[in-house]
């Protein structure tokens, strides 16, 4: 059992937790992920590490309530325990040798992008950040990004905060104005990463993306997290859990990844609604 030592609601659907897991905290690096199971009956889901405190032995996770498992997790409070917490899995984000980096975060993906931006800053890189959200109320970690970025652009789809538009707008502006970064790291919804990677490739800018597909074990055993990379015109399969989660954005077949990510969307929607109804009933009775 792994104790939740702190919980903070970042926006209506995004929650941050610090979880006591000393062994994981000791070895975790930015870009790696953990597998969590809130209850003994829950699904195993991967969540990327959003931070860690080696001394306190805690690992930070930030997640959005999108399905039954994250909904269940969101109902736990400080002092409660999660049933299983294993990691750190996958390869750490490669920050070495990257001196001029644009970090792009979309939605809850900002939670994963932040520790990478922090690490880059620590290593002396010049860090520019662009973070994008649907609307003002969903903005998370803005101050934290500001603290580690030389420049920060905040984008909202509806223009309710910062600039209206998607994360590609400031990226394109940098390129047009001759301020193109030496490297782009993009983490967020697949469709966002697809277009950032496309723009990066068209302009010859190296691009790293972090993939978060459906997986079970996280150790290379199930193959459910396989994605396709296109290398020199050849299609190659890779497992996000052991070969990633970071991949060369120029190579990832995003359309296929988007198709695969919806494999259980009906099931998830059903389970989520079931969960919501249950909570509604409990609130009514209680």
């Amino acid at each position: 059992m792994y104790r939740i030592v702190s919980k903070k609601v970042l926006n209506p659907t995004v929650i941050m937790m610090d979880i006591e897991a000393p062994l994981v905290a000791k070895r975790a690096e930015a870009g790696q992920f953990i597998i969590i199971r809130p209850m003994e009956t829950s699904e195993r889901i991967p969540l990327t590490v959003a931070g860690f405190d080696r001394e306190k032995g805690t690992v930070k996770i930030i997640f959005q309530t999108v399905g039954a498992t994250t909904l269940m997790l969101s109902q736990l409070n400080e002092g409660d325990c999660v049933s299983d917490f294993a990691g750190p899995l996958g390869k750490p984000c490669e920050t070495e040798g990257k001196s001029d980096v644009l970090v792009v975060g979309g939605g809850v993906g900002c939670a994963i992008a932040l520790p990478i931006a922090e690490k880059l800053k620590e290593e002396g890189a010049s860090v520019r950040s662009v973070i994008g959200f649907r609307t003002k109320d969903l903005i998370i970690l803005k101050d934290e990004f500001e603290a580690v970025s030389d420049t920060l652009d905040v984008m909202t789809d509806d223009g309710s905060f910062g600039e209206m538009g998607n994360v590609c707008v400031p990226f394109e502006r940098m390129i047009k104005e001759g301020r193109a970064p030496g490297h782009v790291i993009a983490i967020g919804p697949l469709v966002m990463m697809k277009f950032v990677a496309k723009m990066a490739k068209e302009n010859g800018i190296p691009c790293t993306v972090s993939m978060n597909p459906i997986m079970i074990d996280g150790t290379g055993m199930c193959g459910g997290c396989r994605i396709t990379l296109v290398k020199d015109g050849k299609r190659v399969s890779a497992f996000a859990c052991v070969d990633g989660p970071d991949f060369d954005g120029w190579e990832v077949d995003f359309d296929e990844a988007m198709m695969r990510s919806g494999a259980y969307s009906d099931f998830e929607r059903h389970k989520y609604e079931e969960g919501c109804n249950l909570f509604k009933k409990e609130t009514k009775n209680g």
């Binding site: 055993m221 199930c222 193959g223 459910g224 399969s237 296929e256 198709m259 695969r260």
Partner: peptide, 12 residues
């Protein structure tokens, strides 16, 4: 076609 939805490894 091995990436289509509904293709599993036996392990998975």
């Amino acid at each position: 076609g091995e990436s289509f939805k509904g293709v599993y490894s036996a392990n998975e």
